[in-house]
Structure formats: structure tokens, C-alpha cells
Amino acid sequence: MNNFSIISSLLDNDFYKFTMQNAVLKLFPLVKAKYEFINRGKYSFPKNFANILKENLNKMSYLKLSNKERIFLEKYCPYLDSSYLDFLNQYQYNPKEVNIYQKGKNIKMNIEGLWSRTILWEVPLMAIISELYYKLTGIKRLSDKNIIILTKEKLKKYKKLKVKIGEFGTRRRYSYQVHKLILKILIEEGYPFFIGSSNVHLSHIFSIKPIGTKGHEWIMFHAAKYGFNIADRIAMENWLNIYKGNLGIALSDTYTSSIFFKNFNKKLSNTFKGIRHDSGDPISFIKKTIKHYKKFKINPIKKKIVFSDNLNPDKVAFISSFCKNKINPFFGIGTNFTNDVGPPSMNIVIKMIKTIPKKNWISVVKLSNVEKKSTGKKNMIFFAKKILHL
């Protein structure tokens, strides 16, 4: 591998991609999926960007799970069974699944194939696009010394607040090198408040347990297969069937939190250890969550909320003070750790847009608690809102 390989390990990805891949293989092995790159920030990409991006993807086809990496997964992620790890041993990225073309300064990209295979592309692709963009546009960052100072300052604030924090910043990191540097500081100086990283490869390097559960695409597929009204519930039940209560954080905003809470029945509320908040006003969400648990006579102080929506030390201070003695907050901090190094971080996403749950392609949508975070075709979003009476 020459120095220009941005992704150097099959595990340089978010943990929830592997946990979802395992569940997809067990329950929906023949389902196909299609993803699309969305340039939310309307960036102009330099000449030849698409070709250099393709070169990086082609190098990814040589990545294989090493014996050491498999042993790491067996030790730290016991709920990933040997049949899945055997699959991962055989897995190789297939760049033919990714279609990229550049028109002027605009990049178009989609990914298509078996869901169980294509599910791993999103996070490393975004990390490559981000790193290449800074490299090819020559946008300078802070020095390592200043990054270390800044990260330690943030860490000091989090330690003072006594809050549990994790690092979720793979997809929009400035670069692999910056990501590794920041994680090293968090591990060396974050004890006992730093609880881990979502990046499996870096977790392996530093011998820590990777963190994460599932993403929106898991529920979006269930909506395509079973309908919008019950997607949350069936997605959670299927998750329980695979993981038996492990990885028990429910995702609350694929079809807005109000629909989620209708699906989050007494059994699920008891079984899942907590809920992830990823969009909308955190305070009203905390209130709703507490009210929901109390309705089922569940003590909220025994439950968690994992906050992961664009966090920084001020937001964390505000949210954690409101949670005090009410419910347990955890914070997944992404870009504010891995790409707060001078230039603005990129506002880009790659989202599932279609799937084949039965015979034909169906467009999928996500209706976030915040309008601008919704994804999917306009007519499908309209249709979903109508069905859900939103």
C-alpha cells in the first residue's frame, strides 16, 4: 500500500456498520440496496477529483480482515458470532458496486448491490472524500501541537462536567492522521469519562472496545418492507432477536420521535437499555423520554439517552445539567473532535435511497425531527408524512 491509501484496514469504519451487516446477513441476505452521495454543503470539487477517488476505492479491494483483527473482534465484540466473522474473513470491497462521475466541479455517486455487501461503503467513502477534498484544495489545518492543546481543553471541560463521552467522528474527519492523534489523547487523558470510539480499526490499534449499535438505514429498510407505521417496532424486535439485549440502544428519529414512542412498547422500553437522540430539540426529547418511561412505571434513572447530534462542550454542558438526577446522558461526539482543526467540516452524507424488500425497487425515506435532515424523494416524503399523519 503506498502512502496515498487513505483507508488501510477493512475495520476503518464505524462499528454499527458491522453490527448491522451481521443482522442483514442473518435476516435479509438477498435484499439489495442503493445509496446516493448528497453534497449538502454544495462544495466545488477540484479537477480530476473523481479519478483520484476511484484510485482510492480500487486500493480498498485489496483489504482483508487479518488474524489479529479477527482475534480482536472475538475478544471485544462477543455478540458477533463465528459465522459472521467467517463471512468477514472472506469479504472484500468490490469497487464495481460504486459508480462515480464528475461533471465540472460536481460529483455524482451511487452505490448498488446486495445490502449485506454495500452496507460497508458509506463511512470509509465519506472519510476518503473529506480527506481528499482538504488535500487537493490545499486547505491548511492547525498544527499537531495546537490540535493537541484544543482537544485537551475540550477534554478538561468534559471531565469537569463528569460526563461520559465517546468519539463518533470517522465519517467527516479531517484526515486519518488527525483522527488517530485525537483518539490517542482521548484514551490517554480521558479516563474514566471517555468510553470509546465508534471506529473499529482505531479501537483495535489502541485495544479498546468499539461502541455503536445501529443506524437509520436499518429502520428505513423495515419501513419499505413492513410500512412506516410499524417500522420502528419490527426493526427493534428483529434487533433483539439477533443480539438478545446486547447493543441495546434504540434509535428514535427515523420517522420522528413521536412515531418512535408509539412503537416503543412496554416490552421494548424495558429491554432496551436506552435511546439515541440524533435530531431535534434535546430538552423536549428528554422530557418526552422521561414521561414515556414513567407511563410504563420504568425508573428513567436506570436508562440512558445517547446524544449524537452535532455536539460541542457548550451543548453537552447544557444537556447534561438538564438530565441531572433524571436520566443518564451519554454523548457521542463526532466532527467536533475529528474535524475541528481550522477549516470548516464538510456537510456531506451518503444515504440509502432504494431497496428491494420483495420484488421491486422501493424508494426509502428518513423523516428526521428536523426538516433539513430528512432524506428521500420529495413525493415519498410527502406520502410518508400523510400515512403517519405528521
Rank of each mutant, 00 (worst) to 15 (best):
K244H: 11
N328K: 11
N238G: 01
K47W: 10
I230S: 05
F296T: 07
G104T: 10
D232T: 00
D86W: 03
F382M: 12
K358E: 14
G104S: 13
P357K: 06
I327W: 08
S9A: 12
K297N: 12
A33V: 03
T137K: 05
K372T: 15
I100Q: 08
L80Q: 07
A224G: 14
S279V: 15
M20K: 12
T289Y: 00
I187W: 10
S197P: 05
I362F: 09
K214L: 08
S321E: 14
N146K: 09
K324P: 02
L11Q: 03
K209D: 04
L268R: 00
M20C: 09
I139M: 13
R70K: 14
M1H: 11
L136Q: 12
K372Y: 15
I208Q: 07
I208C: 05
K164R: 15
I381A: 01
M220S: 14
I305Q: 05
L125S: 00
K64E: 13
N229Q: 14
K47L: 13
N238E: 14
N199H: 05
Y93G: 03
A317S: 15
N13G: 07
K160Q: 11
I353M: 07
N229P: 00
H216G: 07
N99Q: 11
Q177H: 11
L150P: 01
V316K: 12
F72L: 08
N22E: 13
I348C: 07
N347I: 13
G274K: 03
L183H: 06
G280A: 06
G334Y: 00
G166F: 08
P78F: 09
H222S: 01
K145H: 13
S197N: 05
K359F: 13
A33D: 00
F382Q: 15
Q177K: 15
I147E: 08
I71M: 10
I205A: 03
Y62C: 07
K162D: 13
M236S: 02
L161Q: 09
I286V: 14
N199I: 07
K378N: 10
N89A: 11
N229L: 09
F285L: 12
K291I: 13
K64S: 13
K34S: 07
I211C: 04
N336S: 15
I362K: 11
I6N: 04
L27T: 04
G245K: 01
V163F: 06
V24R: 04
G41A: 11
P124N: 02
I187G: 06
F264Y: 15
L30C: 02
N39W: 01
G248Q: 02
